[in-house]
Write a protein that binds this DNA or RNA. Structure first.
Length: 488
RNA sequence: CGGGGUGUAGCGUAGUCCGGUUAUCGCGCCUGGUUUGGGACCAGGAAAUCGUAGGUUCAAAUCCUACCACCCCGACCA
């Protein structure tokens, strides 16, 4: 198998090759849509399982709404239309027919009202909330759905941006502002906790500026990460919707004093984009590197043998090792195929990012040892196989921590404080990453910087370091630094 | 959606300008054998409606038209 393109050579190519060669996903012949393969989908399932538990632990129930949204419903919230109308797939007909040996759309089967394929479900959900919510006793409503959405993106990239994407969207309704804001922040914290502790990706929490805010939200909370090439990626959002959707869909409740009030809302989501971030953050020129908590296979065992008899002897020991690992809830795959050489397998599992590889040959067998190789730093050590039940779990924990530590160091190196606009441009071009700079708080300045440098304000950090300064562009006074970066 | 490029076996390609036998080579795949501690070797074999649909021609991978998909650069965006 050919060598992987290195990150330095061509970062985009490296990224695409990892996805294809590690068997995560492939492009389909549908524009911008990908086929997620078993190994890639297994990662998504892990993400789903862990987050699903966290959502349920905080009182959320799963539901399912239709894929289609009638056009009239979709058009009710003005900002929302502005934000999404440019990228909607629309169903206009419901029947095909044969004509001259071709299949054509039956012109007689035109829909009375067109259906929008959901780019997100706020509209249909708030339309439904109108029926569900009458009294303060009906609130809060805390629901989530795992679904697919369609956004007709101009420029797609496997996992990072696809026309169809799998995600989770939470939609909650509350009696008051405080509770809704609390919910939005709570979900941002759940995402942060998951992404840092399971995906081993350090993030920055913040709020979006008015320009970058979700269409229809009052406040968009977000988490941002920086990739190895210095580009930023938004990897999760949580929106405080205020009363925008309740007003657009006329969703009111009677409060405990008998008065009518509009409902307060939130929505929040993460998508298969997380897998894109996972690949970009940890992987190296040998291939994928997966954090143990999300790896579909945590350990792989490679036997090294010269004949059937030797393989039998190794397999006998391996079956013990497999049992020990299973008792410790560690997933294990024993690759005893003899069509590939050990060397081929070493490369294969490094490409696939399996956190720990265990090599067992006849030489080791005689010494009662196995060789353990870490994927994160490729270090090797020999271990007596009586200690495997102790060492492997410890090592997985260490790898998990080490991946986060490495990512954190890289992230911190990518944060540069800048106070001069020329310096700002210089850092952007030479180093990339996040730039912490003062901003006067106006959309006008934000737009000008974007036009000039293709850089956006990724977020206004939640952890406020109150510091007076002057806007990097306009020189006007500023109370806080914000994160600028070029983004995916 | 604007500018540029690409599409030939699962992947990477030669051939396309200048139409002419059976479409080239490598990897992969299948069979048999020898191998097996960092991507093994030998021998044999299978696999292509040349992106799709029309057109020009005695003849199209090659020329023309339309469409589709992908890649790069912009604009849009999770």
């Amino acid at each position: 198998m050919a060598q992987l393109t290195s990150r330095r050579e061509d970062y985009s190519k490296w990224y695409n090759e990892i996805i294809i060669k590690a068997n995560l996903a492939e492009t389909s012949n549908v524009r911008g849509c990908m086929i997620i393969k078993p190994y890639g989908f297994a990662i998504w399932e892990k993400i789903q399982n862990i987050l699903n538990k966290k959502f349920k632990n905080t009182g959320h129930d799963n539901i399912y709404f239709p894929l289609f949204i009638p056009k009239s419903l979709f058009s009710k919230e003005a900002c929302h239309i502005d934000g999404f109308s440019q990228e909607c797939a629309v169903v206009t007909h419901y029947r095909l027919k044969k004509k001259d040996n071709n299949i054509i759309i039956d012109p007689e089967a035109k829909l009375e009202e067109e259906l929008i394929v959901r780019p997100t479900s706020e509209t249909i959900i708030w339309h439904t909330y109108r029926r569900w919510i009458k009294s303060y006793r009906d609130l809060p409503i805390l629901i989530n759905q795992w679904a697919n959405i369609i956004r007709w993106e101009m420029h797609t990239r496997l996992f990072l941006r696809t026309s169809e994407c799998l995600w989770q969207e939470g939609h909650t309704a509350h009696t008051n502002k405080k509770e809704a804001v609390c919910e939005a922040k709570q979900m941002l914290n759940i995402y942060t906790n998951f992404i840092e502790n399971y995906m081993a990706i350090p993030v920055i929490q913040g709020v979006k500026t008015a320009i970058e805010r979700f269409a229809g939200a009052e406040e968009t909370y977000c988490i941002e990460a920086i990739m190895q090439n210095g580009k930023a990626l938004q990897i999760g959002t949580s929106h405080f919707l205020g009363q925008n959707f309740s007003k657009a869909f006329n969703v009111k409740f009677t409060n405990n004093k008998g008065y009518q009030e509009y409902v307060w809302g939130t929505s929040w989501g993460i998508s298969t984009r997380l897998i894109g971030a996972l690949i970009m953050i940890h992987s190296d020129d040998k291939g994928l590197v997966l954090p143990p908590k999300l790896a579909p296979i945590q350990t792989v065992i490679i036997p090294i043998f010269k004949n059937e008899e030797q393989l039998k002897r190794i397999t006998k020991i391996v079956s013990n090792i497999k049992n020990i690992l299973k008792e410790n809830n560690i997933s294990v795959f024993y690759d005893d195929r003899n069509i590939y050489t050990p060397g081929w397998k070493f490369n294969e599992y490094e490409l696939k990012g399996v956190p720990i590889r265990i090599n067992i040959g006849i030489k080791d067998l005689e010494k009662g040892m196995v060789e353990i190789v870490r994927r994160d730093n490729l270090n090797k050590q020999f271990v007596n196989y009586n200690y495997i039940g102790k060492i492997i779990p410890e090592l997985l924990t260490i790898i998990q921590k080490n991946l986060f530590k490495k990512a954190l160091e890289r992230r911190n190196n990518f944060i540069t404080k800048v106070d001069d606009y020329n310096e700002f441009k210089k850092i952007l071009n030479e180093k990339g990453g996040f730039i912490l700079a003062h901003w006067d708080g106006t959309s006008e300045t934000e737009k000008k910087i974007k036009l000039d440098t293709k850089t956006t304000i990724r977020c206004i950090p939640l952890k406020k370091s109150k510091e007076k300064g002057k806007c990097i562009y306009s020189g006007k006074p500023s109370n806080q630094r914000v994160f600028f970066a070029k983004a995916y």
